[in-house]
């Protein structure tokens, strides 16, 4: 196995410092698990087996335990996704305001074709999610960390242009 595929630790240098700055905020290290997983996803875009093992070691947990937590929360990716990850809400309040049409438009304009698939150019992945908490601003979407309100099928192409 080449060194290129060998796992490179996340928690070194600045990221390590950021994690350690969190330790005094909780009485137990285990409480830093969700924050630690966010740091990994921020750095790498997804959470690999190697990252799970590293997080477990840093926090004094077992990889099995960390994996059980990672797979519980839907925002953590356990496999690589497109450069830009799009989450569109289709729960009822948005659903009755055209969320499914927005979803179709997103799949078309990103080139993804199907939910959960990454576009051929690796640029986008689109998934349906449950209520994003912006029901009065239907349809909301999250692109990476950007929360965009009031998306309509007509606006989709323009919105996507901003994401290379």
């Amino acid at each position: 196995m080449s060194s290129a595929t060998q796992y490179q630790p996340v928690f070194v240098g600045e990221i390590r410092a950021r994690l350690e700055a969190l330790f005094p905020k909780y009485p137990e290290k285990q409480a830093c698990l969700l924050p630690a997983l966010w740091l990994v996803q921020e750095a790498r875009g997804w959470i690999s087996d190697g990252a799970i093992a590293e997080v477990a070691e840093v926090l004094g947990l077992t990889p099995a335990y960390v994996r059980g937590v990672v797979t519980f929360y839907t925002m953590y990716h356990t496999h690589p996704v497109g450069r830009h990850f799009i989450q569109v809400c289709t729960t009822s309040p948005c659903n009755i305001c055209g969320a499914e049409e927005v979803t179709k438009a997103l799949l078309k304009h990103t080139g993804c074709g199907a939910l959960g698939a990454t576009s051929p150019d690796g640029r986008f992945t689109v998934i349906e999610v449950e209520c994003l908490g912006a029901c009065g601003f239907a349809t909301p979407i999250l692109i990476d960390d950007d929360f965009v309100e009031g998306v309509t099928p007509e606006r989709v192409a323009g919105i996507l242009q901003g994401y290379k």
Binding site: P63, G68, T71, F72
Partner: peptide
């Protein structure tokens, strides 16, 4: 020796084991 977990959520849940163990 916590090598088993519950993975996923809802009716997709299953018992997982740490792949290294």
């Amino acid at each position: 020796a916590p090598v088993l977990n519950v993975s996923e959520r809802g009716d997709r849940a299953y018992i997982g084991i740490d792949p290294a163990h």
